[in-house]
Simulated assay, not measured.
Amino acid sequence: MVDLTEHERAALRAAMRAMAEVMAEIGWTTPLNALSEQQVLTLAEVAVGAFQDAMRAVLSVQRLPGGALLMTEPSLDFNHRPKPPTAAEAINALIDAALVAENGTRARREYLGGSRLGDPCARRLQYEFLDVPRDPDTGFSGQTLRVFAVGHVFEDLAIGWLRRAGFDLRTRSRSGEQFGFSVAAGRVQGHIDGVVVAAPASAQSVVAVPALWECKSANARNWKEIVRRGVAAAKPIYAAQVALYQAYMGLTEAPALFTAVNKDTAELHHELVPFDGALAQATSDKAVRVLQACDAGEWLPRIAAEPDHPECARCPWRTRCWS
Rank of each mutant, 00 (worst) to 15 (best):
F51G: 06
L76C: 06
T105G: 11
T72R: 03
V22F: 06
R81G: 04
V40H: 14
I26F: 03
S75I: 07
A88M: 10
F78M: 03
K83M: 12
P31F: 02
V22T: 10
Q62Y: 03
P31Y: 00
L41S: 13
A57I: 00
A54P: 04
F51A: 07
A10K: 11
T5I: 09
R63I: 03
M55C: 01
G67W: 00
N79V: 09
A20E: 03
V22L: 09
E8K: 07
E102D: 14
M16I: 14
E89T: 07
P65T: 02
A34Y: 10
M71N: 07
Q52G: 03
P31V: 01
W28M: 12
P31C: 06
T72W: 06
S60N: 06
K83L: 13
S36Y: 03
E45I: 02
V2P: 15
L69Y: 04
H7R: 11
R63W: 01
A14F: 01
V61N: 05
N92P: 05
N79H: 04
M55T: 13
A57E: 05
A24W: 11
A90F: 09
L64M: 09
L59F: 06
Q39N: 04
F51W: 09
F51N: 05
E73M: 08
V61K: 04
E8L: 14
M19T: 11
D3T: 11
H80A: 13
L43N: 06
R17G: 13
N103T: 04
E8A: 15
I95D: 05
A87I: 04
A93D: 14
Q39F: 01
A93Y: 09
A50M: 03
L59A: 06
A88N: 08
R56K: 08
E102A: 15
L64K: 02
E45G: 08
A20C: 06
A14C: 08
L12W: 10
G104A: 10
M23C: 12
N79Y: 06
F78C: 02
G49H: 02
A98L: 11
R13Y: 09
V2A: 15
N79I: 07
A11F: 05
M16R: 07
L12C: 11
E45L: 09
D3W: 12
H7C: 10
A24P: 05
G27I: 15
A44C: 07
V40T: 07
